[in-house]
Design a protein around this nucleic acid. Structure first.
Length: 224
DNA sequence: GCGACAG
DNA sequence: ATCTTGTCGC
């Protein structure tokens, strides 16, 4: 989209500040959905091509119910704090190809654990007004103690005096992931889902399957 | 001022 | 993110 490719970093930050006024963060826990949608984007080396994947997963069984992908050109560069402007266009296209609107989104990245409290999960959640949260693999914003070594253990991620997320252990003796709420969901529910949706791997199935599907679709579009 | 910095 | 095989450990 031309408006995105022409946007400068300072303008993008203004957009985040504007969209943040629509952010809804419930104080307490709520009912959990029966299905969720995991999201991820895979980039081609040496070109602007990329493929986004949206994978619908049943919470109780962690089974993949549907996969949708969208390929295209990425125009916005990777800038820490502005990841959404790079990934949102293709992610929205992939989500749009699902046979049903997403009940809840799980993003590969952060939610409110962000310099301006508006990471990728907040951005997508607000645009679609759907519950959303982020599961990141590496540190970005926030500090805190190491959670206990067993699956299910977690510790607070604190930034500028606020708890913005949690480091969550999804597997025994494995490096924890960084969980933060995005929109219309409490951190405790995000933590619960991240652990329940993990099965033998560090990354929860929805996001893990989205990574696998987007990667496979990119390779397929390059070869066959 | 310098370094660090989701994917 | 991506370039990349086998290998050690839970």
């Amino acid at each position: 989209m031309a408006t995105l490719s022409a946007m400068r970093p300072d303008e993008a930050e203004r957009v985040q500040d504007e969209l943040r006024t629509r952010l809804v963060l419930p104080a307490g826990r709520g009912p959990l959905p029966g299905t969720v949608v995991g999201l991820d984007v895979t980039y081609d080396t040496g070109s602007d091509r990329a493929v986004a994947a949206a994978v619908l997963v049943e919470v109780s069984s962690r089974a993949v119910l549907e996969v949708a992908t969208a390929a295209g050109e990425v125009t916005f560069p990777y800038v820490p704090g502005l990841l959404a402007f790079r990934e949102v266009p293709l992610l929205l296209a992939a989500i749009d190809r699902l046979s049903q609107p997403p009940p809840l989104l799980i993003c590969d990245g952060y939610g409110v654990a962000h310099p301006r409290r508006f990471g990728l999960a907040c951005h997508l959640g607000v645009l679609l007004d759907v519950p959303a949260f982020g599961v990141a693999k590496t540190a970005f914003v926030g500090t805190g103690p190491e959670p206990a070594a067993h699956r299910g253990a977690w510790s607070d991620l604190t930034d500028r005096g606020e708890v913005v997320g949690r480091r969550v252990r999804t597997r025994d003796h494995t490096k924890p992931v960084f969980v933060s709420a995005g929109h219309r969901i409490a951190l405790a529910d995000c933590t619960d889902l991240a652990v329940r949706l993990s099965a033998g791997f560090r990354i929860p199935e929805p996001t893990r399957q989205a990574d696998i599907s987007s990667r496979a679709a990119l390779r397929a579009s390059q070869n066959g």
